[in-house]
Amino acid sequence: MLLARLFDEKFASLYRAGKIMGGVFLGRGQEALSVSIGVHLRTGDVFAPLIRDLAGRLAFHEPVLDAARTYLGSVQGPMRGRDGNVHRGRPKSGQLAMISHLGAMISVVNGILFARRMRGVDGTVGVASYGEGATSTGSFHEALNQAAVEQLPLVVVVANNQFAYSTPTVRQFACDSLLARATGYGVAGAAVDGTDLGACLQVVGRAIAQARAGRGPQLVVASLLRLCGHGEHDDAQYISPALKASPAGRDCVKVAEQYVLQQEWAGADTIAHWRAEAAQTIEAAVVTAQRESAPDPFAPHYWSALASQHRWERREEGS
């Protein structure tokens, strides 16, 4: 989560320097929850991250270069300049490339889990990560219900970060807790303090283990505060100082560092060393991506959207 925090800070500074085209979306304040997903996933599992899941992606073995290359538009990145920033992924490695429409990735995860079951592959877990805003969509509802009907090993992690862009939760839903929805869908539910790394590791880990053990879909709802704007273009003045000072407003990275020190798992100098190491890794990735080529609009392969293009062309040549 330290690497993710520092990487995000690097992206923010590249954005301010005008080095990144398009938006930059940070996971600041959500790293503890996000990393808890990634560390509990195994090779063969599936993760549909949201825009604030750099920590979870890295923990689920997304190459460090992927984020740098995608933000900077390198042709060597997984999206080859065709899509940017947080819309990256490697579907063959279980890292799904999100579309922007909220809730839409959950049923895609369901489909992969459904296919695994049909093919007789056991033990796969799929996690879809969303914010509380996505819980208001039809897609979210349909997909969670579908997973429950099919009893798929799906874990949906909802980061209630208090705002969907600028919209507060009171304008998003009227139930006391989003956790109540788990009962409605017939799935297991668990709440967690999203600022507490230890609690996140435990609760998310348990949900993933339950799904893996065949106990059906799991909903985890974390409360925390987005410690940044929706994107770096947004100064988030709508977030009140009172909310920032509330328990939900704690910085999960600081909380985790204090905990590590208290438990004497590492000293201040070790943490400083981790930071320096992470900063070096990030710098190297950014330098590499910056040196790589941008996409060439005259390369014809960019302008065909069909995997079966060869099928049609071969016939044209043959006729």
Binding site: P91, A104, M105, V108, N110, G111, F114, A115, E142, Q146
Partner: peptide, 9 residues
């Protein structure tokens, strides 16, 4: 969505 996921797999 489910069909897309299954196709991906």
């Amino acid at each position: 969505g489910l069909a897309i996921g299954a196709a991906l797999d």
